[in-house]
Design a protein around this nucleic acid. Structure first.
Lengths: 205, 205
DNA sequence: GTTTCCATGAAACAAATGTACTCTAATACA
DNA sequence: TGTATTAGAGTACATTTGTTTCATGGAAAC
């Protein structure tokens, strides 16, 4: 959570700044001066006022004069990552243009009930899902609505969870790996429960 | 931005709710009742009060009684994605436990100057970076500090940008693909500029 | 040691603000 | 049509809250 805090700030200013950021993250609104006073263990609003003034002069915060609880943190508000263009396949193709759009990772997270799984092993290596990758899954309630070829996480009761391609053949289910070393698994509908389907892959290096 | 708004809400309530969400997103703090009154074109705080009460009863917002500008939106506050465990390699290994930790994608975005590139082609396919993937890059200023084997985006002036493994051999640079079909590229230090090194891979399906 | 500067404490004031109350107009409903 | 319900206007009041001012005390500078 420590971004680029405490550069030109005194200890007292930095402590207050950190507290404010925490408060606003938790409550979605600005604290009052007397709240800060209490949190900092002070008995007068004057010191807080002084520190706020310094924080504002140094560009950390701002507020509307005279209005209650109207502070804003002028932090680097990163809405997304700028997509600078594309990189080449094998040859050398494209040069950077300007920013084209923003990659909005947080937008995906806004969807409720999304969950993540850590991938163990290489059964999906041909689908470019490697060991240690994080897969983001969307819950699946009705496994009958799944399209063939979807990548799903399936739980076989008593055995565990696995990440596989999903296929429906006649009246049973086939779970297929993306790696020729693994054999397809044939199961009845009632033997397996599909927990989620693959939304995205995240690999941090 | 439209989440799960306007379900049991009247038109007036929904309009106010939307306005509040916009305001709080822009200003990072709660509006006052008289501000909402003005924004809704009303001349008395009473109607706002009534609508707020309804919004609170239906679980959309909350506030601290008597305190100015202490509203909170009880929206789905998604801080991250819950990591539910790990999925199997090829066999069936693990069952879901409880949430272990949260995958914090937005944390990566907080680092300044990160940029993203769209991958074209399959030159890095053996590194599990596929066509269409989004790669998040961190700017590199000093190419001499790069470790051998790092994946970088390199720009050869007049040619374009490419994503490759980076190696330093003697006094020149070798850019190597993760695909045997592509030959390594040998270049002098002054022929190439390293723009960034790979931080993460993002694939949305 | 003396001076200067700044943080703190204390108190007071005015504006902003949430809240409650009454009254009127509009709307829904039977 | 008449009644009940609801929304809105207007008003008033107590509290919260930002802001100002002044006095005190300690730390740093000279």
């Amino acid at each position: 959570m420590e971004t680029s805090s405490g550069d030109n700030l005194t200890h007292a200013q930095n402590e207050l700044y950190g507290w404010i950021k925490d408060y606003m993250k938790n409550f979605q609104h600005s604290p009052s001066i007397r709240q800060m006073m209490q949190a900092m263990g002070l008995k007068s609003p004057a010191p807080i006022q002084s520190r706020l003034k310094h924080l504002q002069e140094k560009g950390y915060i701002s507020w509307q004069e005279g209005k209650a609880r109207t502070m804003q943190i002028v932090d680097e508000i990163v809405e997304g990552v700028p997509i600078m263009g594309s990189v080449a396949a094998g040859g050398l193709i494209e040069t950077f243009a300007d920013v084209q759009e923003n990659l909005d990772l947080s937008g995906v997270l806004k969807k409720k009930d999304i969950f993540a799984l850590t991938v163990n092993g290489d059964s999906m290596i041909d689908a470019c899902i490697a060991d240690g990758d994080m897969v983001l899954m969307e819950p699946v309630n009705d496994s009958h609505s799944l399209k063939n070829g979807t990548i799903v996480s399936a739980m076989v009761p008593g055995s565990g969870t696995t990440l596989k391609y999903f296929f429906r053949k006649n009246s049973h289910i086939v779970l297929e790996a993306a790696n020729p070393n693994y054999d397809p698994i044939h199961l009845d509908f009632n033997e397996v429960s599909i927990q989620g389907k693959l939304l995205a892959v995240w690999r941090k290096l």
